[in-house]
């Protein structure tokens, strides 16, 4: 059975875990993926929004037949969303979940905070 849900008791046990080297590695690992990925997709999205709002002429430039820059740029937002999704879920399975599960198991079986 997992630790009780409300578990208000000794929060200080969690502080020990939080300070451990393994947990700090986990935290840093997550941050070093999520923060740049988040800034990348938000920046890319707002670039698109601003170009759509203030440079509609550029967006109308034809690329192939009737397909213009605007449709390609919009399509690229779809592609980038799918790509980040795939990369993140693979990364999380390989580099985050195993370490996270190891810390959890140690907590559940060993010293229960």
């Amino acid at each position: 059975m997992p630790v009780t849900q409300s578990g208000r008791g000794s929060a200080s046990g969690y502080e020990v875990v939080q300070a451990s080297r393994e947990f700090q590695t986990l935290r840093r690992r997550l941050g070093s993926f999520v923060v740049p990925a988040g800034m990348l997709f938000l920046g890319w999205y707002f670039l698109y929004v601003i170009v759509a709002a203030f440079a509609p002429g550029f967006m109308r430039t034809r690329v192939l037949g009737e397909v213009n820059v605007g449709l390609c740029f919009g399509g690229a937002q779809f592609v980038s969303t799918f790509t980040i999704t795939i990369i993140y879920s693979r990364w999380a399975q390989r580099h985050f979940d195993p370490l996270s599960a190891r810390i959890r198991q140690r907590l559940e079986t060993g010293r229960r905070p």
């Binding site: 997992p2 630790v3 009780t4 849900q5 578990g7 929060a11 200080s12 969690y14 502080e15 875990v17 939080q18 947990f23 986990l26 935290r27 997550l30 996270s100 599960a101 810390i103 959890r104 907590l107 559940e108 905070p113």
Partner: peptide, 21 residues
């Protein structure tokens, strides 16, 4: 803010300890 309670939040958020299965 209480650092002990943030510790509990962060450990639970990243490891899933104490979460209902």
């Amino acid at each position: 803010s209480d650092p002990a309670r943030f510790a509990r939040m962060q450990v639970r958020a990243l490891t899933g300890i104490g979460a209902e299965r």
